[in-house]
Amino acid sequence: MKILLTGATGMVGRNLLEHPEARQIEWLTPTHNELELTNYPATLVYIERHQPDLIIHAAGRVGGIQANMREPVKFLTDNLDMGRNLLLAAANAGVQNLINIGSSCMYPRNRSSALIEEDVLTGELEPTNEGYALAKITVARLAEYLVRENPSLHYKTIIPCNLYGRHDKFDPRWSHLIPAILHKLHQAKIAGHDTVEIWGDGTARREFMYAGDLADALISASQRLQDMPAMLNIGLGTDHSVNEYYEIAADVVGYQGTFTHDVNNPVGMSRKLTDISKAHHWGWRARTTLCHGLSKTYKYYLQTLIEK
């Protein structure tokens, strides 16, 4: 099988290429210069030239709360343009199989119950990442519309919960919660600080899955795409409070200090938990425990410090 993977140098893409079964696949992993997804004509030419059997769309502008609040225009337009151009070019080039990677940011804010795939577009979005969410929703809907007009296409959207893992971004300007926690705790440990500050009161709950597990789900989807629902949550089905993530990560890092809270900073949604019933029915479950995933991620983080 020949698979075009966009975003091959990002966290999801690199974890996918590291999957044990990835060596059995012929991968197209173009650089930004080789495939400019914001340029529709260039995208169409590339796909027509290479004719992949399947496209996995993992490219995108990503970041945590601070980045989304700082650059909402780019988070909206970049992700929308890349997804729209890729899907339309794929359909026009006759590519029948495509996996679009969405985001749990697509779901309405402040839902206390687990989020099911049908909840998309049923409520107000979280303001701190609304631009990113709007782009992801539009591209997922476009995939459904293309299939509606041409039923021979198999264009599906996987909606992962929050991710962390090897090849994550640890720079505080761009990082999500887990890499930010590991970075803060490590720096506090090295500096000998007695306290680490947590944004908000720490009670907000989040579901974080190791990126290697998403890679496993993508490999499964590439093999059984026709059997997969049009939209499918991929996650753990369980969550932890921000305070709990700090406590568990502190054990992994070896930080022995205490925590303080800054309740004046934004914390996003109070809870964001995915319902993974469809994934279980489809035959897939995550394998990596939080402690094991954090340990592997922290080991990778230490390697990046050595390389610097």
Score class of each variant (00 low, 15 high):
E26M: 09
R285T: 10
T304Y: 10
D216R: 00
D239A: 11
G165A: 05
L185E: 02
R111A: 14
Y145M: 09
A221M: 13
L28R: 05
E307M: 06
G237T: 02
G7H: 11
G192M: 11
H292D: 05
K136G: 06
A204W: 05
W27Y: 06
T77G: 03
A188K: 04
L134G: 08
S152I: 02
Y164P: 00
E21F: 15
Q256T: 13
Y46I: 01
E18R: 10
L54W: 04
A250S: 07
T258I: 15
R166G: 02
T274P: 08
I101P: 10
A42W: 10
R206V: 00
V95H: 03
G212N: 04
F208G: 00
I190V: 15
D239Q: 12
L125E: 05
N15D: 10
T77L: 15
D216A: 05
L35Y: 13
S113R: 12
A286R: 05
W199P: 01
Y300L: 02
L28T: 03
L86M: 13
L5Y: 09
T289G: 09
L5N: 08
A250K: 02
R14C: 12
A140Q: 07
L134T: 07
T43Y: 12
M228A: 01
D194C: 15
S241L: 01
Y245T: 00
L88Y: 13
G283A: 04
T297W: 06
M269V: 06
Y132K: 02
P52K: 05
E144F: 11
W174E: 12
E144I: 04
Y132Q: 01
P229A: 01
D275I: 11
F259K: 00
E307F: 15
I56Q: 04
H280R: 14
T195N: 09
A217D: 07
L177G: 00
H183W: 14
H280F: 11
G202A: 02
Q303E: 07
M209C: 06
R285Y: 07
L273M: 13
L44A: 11
R61V: 12
H154G: 02
R111N: 10
A143P: 12
L232W: 05
S104G: 07
S104Q: 12
T260H: 04
D171F: 11
K299F: 14
C161Y: 05
E244G: 00
